[in-house]
Simulated scan of single mutants.
Amino acid sequence: MKTLDTSAKGVYLITVTPFTDSGALDLASTDRMVDFCLDKGVTGLTILGIMGEATKLTAEESRAYARQVLARVAGRVPVVVGVSSPGFAAMSELTQSVMDLGASGVMVAPPSTLRTDEQIAAYFAMVDETLGPQVPWCLQDHPVSTGVQMSAGVILRILKNSPGCVMLKHEDWPGLAKLSAIRAASDKGEVRRVSILTGNGGGLFLPEELTRGADGAMTGFAYPEMMVDVVAAHARGEVERAHDLFDAYLPLARYEQQAGVGLAVRKHLFQQRGVIASAFVRKPGPKLSAQDVADIARLVRRQDRRLRELG
C-alpha cells in the first residue's frame, strides 16, 4: 500500500458505509462499492468519514469495515481512514489498527470543544505527537460539521508544527480565499507545500478550487466519475471542458448536498446504480419521501441527456 504523502492528487472518494435493511454492516455491498469506485477511476478512497456514518459505528464495526475495504482494495489505491476522536487513546488505537491492516494514512478533524487558535494549534501538536513519525495524516477543516473555525493562519501554523501532516482536506465554505492564501504561502516558501484536496459540498466548487491550486477532490458523490473527469480535464488544461462536465452534474450534486437529507439521497442513488443492496441510513438519519425520489429521477434523466449532448 502506498503511504500518503504531500504529492497526493486526483480524487479520493469519501465512501458511504453500506448496511443491510436491518442496519447490520453489509460487507458484500462493501466489496461491490470498492469495485465500482475503482472502475470509475478514483485515485484513492477515504473511509469512516462524517458521511460514512463513522459516529454511528461501534469500535469493532469500524475495524471490521476498514478491514473489508483494505482487503478488497488490496493495495491498488491509497486508503485514508478517519480516526477523529475527542480522546487520544481511542484515536491512537484505531490508527494503529488500520495502519497494520494496510491503510495509507489517517484523517483527523478537530473536536467541537476547541475555540481559540491557541487551543487548535495545541490540539494538533498533540495529534502529531500521538500518531508519531511513521503515520502520515490529513487535517480535515470542515467547520459546518465540527463548529471549529480554523483560519488560514492557524492552518499554516499547524503545518509548520506538525511534520506528519501531509494533506489538508479543505472544506470551509466559503473557502476559496483561504485556499488561495494557503497556496500562496507555500509558493513563497513560507511553509512546505502539502497536498490540498477539497471537499466543499460534494465538490460544488471543484472547478474553481482546482484553478486556485487544489490538487484534486476528497469528497463524496453518487457519480464519482464526475470528479474523476473534471479533475482529469482540468489537469490537461481543458478548463472549459472541465466546467461543462461539472455543470452537467451540478443540479444533482446540489440536490445531494441538502443538509440533513443528503446522505439518504446518495445512498438511494448508489442503490439505484446497483452498487449497494440497501439505502438504509442508521438512526439518527433521514428518510426520503416519494416526492424526493421523483425529484431525483427527474434530475438523473436530465443529467443523462446533458452528458449525451456533451459526448
Results as ranks from 00 to 15, higher is better:
2 K>M: 06
2 K>W: 02
3 T>N: 01
5 D>S: 00
5 D>E: 02
10 G>W: 02
14 I>N: 01
15 T>F: 02
15 T>Y: 01
17 T>K: 01
18 P>A: 09
28 A>Q: 14
28 A>S: 13
28 A>F: 08
29 S>M: 05
30 T>K: 03
30 T>H: 04
33 M>A: 11
33 M>K: 06
34 V>F: 04
34 V>C: 05
40 K>R: 15
45 L>P: 02
47 I>W: 01
48 L>A: 03
49 G>E: 02
54 A>M: 11
56 K>D: 10
59 A>V: 11
60 E>M: 09
60 E>V: 08
61 E>S: 06
62 S>T: 10
62 S>G: 15
63 R>P: 11
63 R>C: 13
63 R>E: 14
65 Y>C: 02
66 A>P: 07
69 V>E: 01
74 A>Y: 05
76 R>E: 05
90 A>H: 09
91 M>N: 00
93 E>G: 02
97 S>A: 11
98 V>Q: 00
101 L>C: 03
101 L>N: 03
101 L>S: 04
109 A>E: 01
112 S>T: 11
112 S>K: 10
125 A>F: 01
127 V>H: 00
128 D>H: 02
130 T>I: 07
133 P>A: 07
133 P>S: 08
134 Q>G: 09
134 Q>T: 13
134 Q>M: 10
139 L>E: 02
141 D>S: 09
142 H>D: 11
146 T>G: 04
148 V>G: 08
153 G>Q: 11
158 I>T: 06
158 I>C: 12
158 I>H: 04
161 N>Y: 07
165 C>V: 02
171 E>F: 10
172 D>R: 07
173 W>S: 11
175 G>S: 08
179 L>I: 09
179 L>C: 07
182 I>N: 03
185 A>I: 05
186 S>W: 14
187 D>K: 06
189 G>E: 04
189 G>K: 03
199 G>F: 03
203 G>V: 02
204 L>A: 13
206 L>C: 04
207 P>W: 04
208 E>M: 09
211 T>S: 13
211 T>D: 15
217 A>K: 03
218 M>R: 01
222 A>C: 12
222 A>T: 08
225 E>H: 10
225 E>D: 15
230 V>Q: 07
232 A>Y: 08
234 H>C: 11
234 H>R: 09
237 G>P: 08
241 R>Q: 15
242 A>T: 14
245 L>P: 06
248 A>K: 07
248 A>D: 04
252 L>N: 04
253 A>D: 12
256 E>Q: 13
260 G>I: 10
262 G>E: 07
263 L>R: 09
265 V>W: 07
266 R>A: 12
266 R>P: 05
267 K>E: 15
268 H>T: 12
269 L>R: 10
271 Q>K: 15
274 G>C: 14
276 I>F: 07
279 A>R: 12
281 V>H: 05
286 P>M: 15
287 K>Q: 13
288 L>R: 10
294 A>K: 10
296 I>F: 10
300 V>F: 15
301 R>D: 09
301 R>N: 12
